[in-house]
Simulated scan of single mutants.
Amino acid sequence: MISVATWNINSVRLRMPLVEQFLKEAAPDVLCLQEIKCQEHQFPAKAFAELGYEYQAIHGQKGYHGVATVSRLPMSEFSRHDWQDNGEARHVGVEIPSAGGLVLENVYIPAGGDVADREVNPKFGQKLDFLERMTRWSEKIDRPTLLVGDFNVAPLECDVYDHKALLKVVSHTPLEVETLGQLQAAHDWVDLGRKHIPAPERNYSWWSYRTYWQGKDRGRRLDHMWASPDLAAQSRAHRIAEHTRDWEKPSDHVPLITEFDV
């Protein structure tokens, strides 16, 4: 059995105490982080190693974005793609031999700005192009693969607190949902969040800092764990560590954890 967690931490150095608390509590074998917001030499590698996560693959940049995968199991870096084609650190892939050669791809898809129109908002176009490049990549995958991270898209009507109110809001527009659907179809990816927590059951992973998160529960399901069909058949449990959103100075995202019989 192997357990994998994913979490947009929104600054790993600022929130390392929360990461430590989560690792001691949930004890995943592997943790994938997005938005680490630091360069590779600034990553708290020693702190992770002291917690037992000595194997690390870090793709960072100064002040923004960045992804990192840390593991208690031996692993090696497998891939590093620039799907936005602009040098931003948004992906790192690893291979875990003891898990049957599992390939684990950790991605931070661009948020896309505030206006859902690539003509007036280049960031929205970059997001769509990023997803399109990932789609072409997905078509060529020939190994059991787990794709996790902050996708910045809530695809289903029940993945947001108010479907009609958010139809024109970036992260839930029909164009983004359609584009993400093409990515999913390219490899027959299985959405583990909805395999284990079927729609329309509530399944949020993000709440804005701007609104009181618990009282109004204005959540969206922006974080995802997708598996190749053969790997998905081996997933046995999936949960959302929603309580971490109530910790002191939390990330606006919460971790997802999936367990596999591999």
Rank of each mutant, 00 (worst) to 15 (best):
L175Y: 02
K46G: 10
R13I: 11
E119M: 03
P229T: 10
G63Q: 01
W226F: 15
F130L: 00
Y55K: 00
V148H: 00
L102F: 04
D117L: 05
P200Q: 13
G60Y: 08
K24E: 10
A26T: 11
I141K: 09
R220K: 15
V107E: 00
H91V: 06
S205D: 04
S79E: 15
L128T: 06
R90Y: 07
D85R: 14
A241N: 05
Q234I: 05
P44H: 07
V262E: 02
G149M: 04
C38F: 05
G193K: 01
A26N: 04
T179F: 09
R133P: 13
D114A: 14
D261C: 00
H81Q: 14
W213K: 14
V153G: 06
E20T: 14
R118L: 01
Y55M: 02
C38T: 13
K62L: 02
P198C: 13
V19R: 00
T6N: 03
E20D: 11
W137S: 04
V4Y: 03
G63W: 11
I141M: 07
I96A: 04
P122N: 07
M134K: 02
D142M: 07
R236G: 11
R136N: 14
A199T: 09
T173K: 08
F48Y: 10
S79P: 02
I2Y: 02
G60V: 12
S251M: 08
H59F: 05
A186C: 11
L146V: 12
S251Y: 08
C158N: 06
I58D: 01
P155R: 08
G52M: 08
Q34Y: 11
N10D: 14
P174M: 12
F124V: 03
D230L: 11
A27Q: 15
G52A: 06
F130M: 09
D142H: 10
R221G: 06
L222C: 09
Y161M: 10
W83G: 03
D150H: 04
L31F: 03
V70D: 00
A116K: 06
V92L: 08
E119H: 13
L104K: 06
F130Q: 03
A233I: 02
T135M: 08
D162S: 14
R143T: 10
G101I: 05
W247I: 12
H91F: 12
